[in-house]
Amino acid sequence: MSEATIKTTEAGPRPYGMRFLQPPRRAAQPRPDGVRYSPELQLTVGADGNPWKTEAMASETSSNNDGGQAGEDTDPDPY
């Protein structure tokens, strides 16, 4: 392999596929369906009546926009 034919950055050479990296979609555009779930839907109350923590309820960080030919948005999986 010739070093001259590999595109390099300050951090060193990058694999071919990395040239297709794009900024996070979430930052680039709104949710695909334009949906903002209501606060009611964010309430994850168990059947025993104990509410889940409330500080996350206003968050819109769930990524509902994965899929397609390029594969899933992969969150860290502790497994």
Binding site: L41, Q42, L43, T44, E55, M57, S59, E60, S62, D75
Partner: peptide, 12 residues
């Protein structure tokens, strides 16, 4: 995760 709104749909 806590802010998983998709899971919320099932929990509801």
């Amino acid at each position: 995760s806590q802010p998983d709104t998709t899971a919320d749909l099932v929990v509801r």
